[in-house]
Amino acid sequence: MKKTMGSLAAIAGVFAIAGSAHAFSPENVECIAPANPGGGWDFTCRSVGKILYDLKLVPEPVKVTNMPGGGGGVAFGYVVGKRNDDANLLVAASTATTSRLATNQFAGLTADQVRWVASLGADFGVIAVSKDAPYKNLGDLMAAVKADPDKIAFGGGSAVGGWDHLKILIVAKAAGITDARSVKYVSFNSGGKALTQLLGNHVQAVTGDVSEIKGQLAAGNVRALAVLSPERLSTDPDIPTAREQGFDAIGANWRGFYLPKDVSDDVHQSWGKIMAKLYESEDWKKAMEANGLAPFYNGGAQFDDFVRQNIADIEQLSKDVGLLK
């Protein structure tokens, strides 16, 4: 946590110096959520949009436009093709976006066709089982998977090859399982549905995000065997990390935004500054906490590198486990 604060201060400092003479201020901001109302991107646009307006970082309320299709691909294509220089357009993004870019599910579009702005939080992956399950820790579960892969079904919200699936594959890889076919993943439409199936004992485990299982965890109906973060979360310190149980697996679903490519550097930096300010605000902290998001700020040039690395990692992982040729 201290390290994050330190780097955050440094970033803010850099922005302050570099952008102090910024001429750009946003107006009539539009945020595109590449999905139907009710999903994670929609939430990102709406909650961030609300706070931007409440904090007067933007003059008018942020207009949220839903543009579903192609798992985010339609919106991506739209921005690249038609709004390429709009400085007042933010598009919600997350690891779901990068994982699709990594596996080329956006029909040839690539990550450098847009400008990545910042990530404002991360939802760390978590592996959970029902409260009566015989597995006491991640090791037990993985051993069971190795012994009889067919018996353990992991439920998740994303499609096969999607982020929820990748998370369990990351863990499996750390456990020494290198063939994706040895892990039984069944996709449900949403994390919530997968969780419900866990409660009904139709699946044996669930790979999801911390925010998704919060409610059930607090009620004691499920047990989180591991969280895929580098250190235990301050919001849920009782969940052991995968790392401390001997499995080097990190799975973070960051949430942030990208901008159209042809905006000026000044615009890009200004937005970065705005996001940094939002990140430090009490409003955002409260929103994060209420939703199980962990602090995870990344912005500016650093974020660009992060995204590229993210994509490369996922591509590599997909190839390793045979998901991608």
């Binding site: 109302p37 009710g38 939430f43 949403s190 419900t196 409610g215 009620a219 409260k286």
Partner: peptide, 28 residues
């Protein structure tokens, strides 16, 4: 009770609740 939307519209209601910092679930 479960935080799982049963239909498209409850999904939107759910999103609204979340953006108001209210998380539905068994403890709600």
């Amino acid at each position: 009770a479960l935080g799982v939307p049963g239909s498209g519209t409850t999904a939107v209601l759910l999103a609204l609740l979340i953006s108001l910092n209210i998380t539905p679930g068994p403890l709600l």
